[in-house]
Design a protein around this nucleic acid. Structure first.
Lengths: 246, 246
DNA sequence: AAGTGGTCTAGACCACTCC
DNA sequence: GAGTGGTCTAGACCACTTC
C-alpha cells in the first residue's frame, strides 16, 4: 500500500514535523526553555532521528531554536536587532560605534578584497579585527582591510601577531588614522555565507554555521580607502537599515 | 579558567570534503558545468552519500553550486546583484522600479505585519504581490500590505482571487494610490529565513530553501502606510545598499 | 525508462558540556 | 560518567526531469 495520496503536492515528513513543532513552540514553550532531546522527540513523533533533525535545523535557521552540543535545544529569544545603517560619520572606530577592536595584523588580503580595494594582489594591507556583541551574545566579527598606501604619512608599528592587547591598541591607532580623511561614500552588500573555522569559534558556533556577510567599501576621494567584511550570526541577528528621504 | 578559547583539532569529513570540492570547482570546472552525480562523487571520495550531501549543501548555501532534482548539480554563476537602496522616491511601483505586480487580494495580514503597521489584528488590508527577476532567473517575490484606511478616499474594486490579469491591474492601481502621499521614511531590515511552500514555488526552489527576508516599513506623516515583505533567494542573490554621505 | 537529487531509516560512534 | 547534539554509514524508496 503506497501512500498514493496525491493532493496537488507532496509534503515531506520533515516539513510536516516543522509545522507541528513550530506550533508547539508557540503554545507550549517559553523562550529559553529546553526541549526534550532529539532521540526522545524522534521517538515521540515516530520518525528517524535524522528526519527530526531536518526539521530542527530549519527551525534553527529561522531563528526559532538554538541548539548547543552537550547542552540541548532551547527556544530562541527574538533575534538581536543590529543597525547597519550608514551615518554621516561612519568610519569604523568612530564615535557611537559599538565594536571592540581585538587585533591587528599586516599581510596580503584575500583576492576578492584586493579586487574591491583596487590594489595589486601582492600589496600587503593593514588588517584590523573587530568584535561586536549584543544582548550578551556574540553578534558579529569583522575584518577591515586598509592599504597602508592610503593611510598616508608615517610608518606603522612593528611586528604583530594579531592577538595581544598591544595589537588591539595598534588596531585602534590604524583606525584613527583613517578618521583624518573625509568619508565620501559607503557601499554595502549583504549576502548569505557560512562561517569559517576561525569566525565560527569567535561567534560561538560550529564551522559552516549560516552567517550574513556584510561587505563595506569606504570611499575617499573616489577611491576605496578601506574594505570591511563583517560576519553576522544569521540565526540570532536581524540587520536594520534606517534610510531617510526628503 | 575563564572563557579561554581552546582550539579544537578535529575536522569532520564533510568539512574536508567541502574544502576539496571547493578547490576543484575553481580549478577543474567552469560555470554551468555539470558535476558527476552524488552517488559517483560519494564513491569517488569514499564516503557515504549523506556525508557528501552535507558538503554539497554548504557549497550551495555559499552560492557555489546549484542543485536541481532530476537534473543534476551545476557550478553556479556569480550571485545576481540586487539593489535594495532607498532612493528619494522609493514607493513600490514607482519609476525605475523593476518589479512586476502579479496579483492583489484583500484580507487579514499576518500578526507580525499588523504589529508593524500598527493596525488591529482583525483589520483587513490590501495585499499586493510582486515578482522580481534578474539575469533570467527568479530573484524575489514580495507581498505588500496596505491598510485601506490609509489609502484614503474611495472604495476599492470588487472581489479578487489574487491571480488573474485583472488582479495585477488592480494591484498596480492600489500602488498608484500610494504615490499621492509624500514618503517620509523607509526602514528596512534583512534577516535569514526559509521559503514558504508558496514562495518556494514562485522562486523555483523547494520549500524551506534559504531566503533573505527584507522587511520594509513605508512611513507617511509619522505612521506606517505600508509594509513590504520581500523574499530573495539567498543562494543566488547579493543585496547591495548604496549609501551616500555628506 | 533511465537518471537525477530529495527523503527516510536504524543504527553507530564522536565531541562536547555539565555534574 | 551521563547526557546532549554532531557526524557518519549503507542501504531504500520517492519526486522530478529528460529522453
Amino acid at each position: 500500500m503506497g501512500t498514493t495520496h496525491v493532493e496537488q503536492g507532496f509534503e515531506p515528513k520533515h516539513r510536516q514535523l516543522k509545522t507541528v513543532l513550530s506550533e508547539a513552540l508557540e503554545t507550549e514553550f517559553a523562550v529559553g526553555q529546553v526541549l526534550p532531546n532529539e532521540r526522545e522527540l524522534a521517538a515521540r513523533f515516530g520518525v528517524a532521528r535524522a528526519t527530526l533533525r531536518q526539521a530542527l535545523e530549519q527551525l534553527e535557521l529561522d531563528g526559532r531554536l538554538q541548539r548547543r552540543r552537550g547542552v540541548g535545544t532551547t527556544v530562541a529569544p527574538p533575534r538581536t536587532v543590529v543597525d547597519v545603517s550608514a551615518s554621516p560619520d561612519s568610519w569604523p572606530g568612530g564615535p557611537g560605534d559599538d565594536w571592540d577592536v581585538t587585533g591587528r595584523t599586516r599581510g596580503l588580503p584575500p583576492l576578492t578584497v584586493a579586487r574591491l580595494l583596487g590594489t595589486a594582489a601582492d600589496e600587503p594591507v593593514e588588517t584590523v579585527h573587530r568584535y561586536r556583541g549584543g544582548d550578551g551574545r556574540p553578534v558579529a566579527v569583522e575584518v577591515l582591510y586598509i592599504p597602508s598606501s592610503r593611510l598616508g604619512g608615517s610608518a606603522v608599528a612593528g611586528p604583530a601577531d594579531g592577538s595581544s592587547a598591544d595589537d588591539a591598541e595598534e588596531g585602534r591607532r590604524v583606525l584613527r588614522r583613517l578618521h583624518r580623511f573625509a568619508l565620501d561614500g559607503l557601499d554595502r552588500s549583504v549576502e548569505l555565507g557560512s562561517a569559517t573555522d576561525e569566525d565560527a569559534g569567535r561567534l560561538g558556533r560550529l564551522p559552516g554555521a549560516p552567517v550574513l556577510v556584510v561587505t563595506s567599501q569606504y570611499v575617499v576621494a573616489g577611491t576605496v580607502a578601506a574594505v570591511g567584511v563583517a560576519t553576522y550570526r544569521a540565526d540570532t541577528c536581524r540587520l536594520t537599515i534606517g534610510d531617510r528621504n526628503g
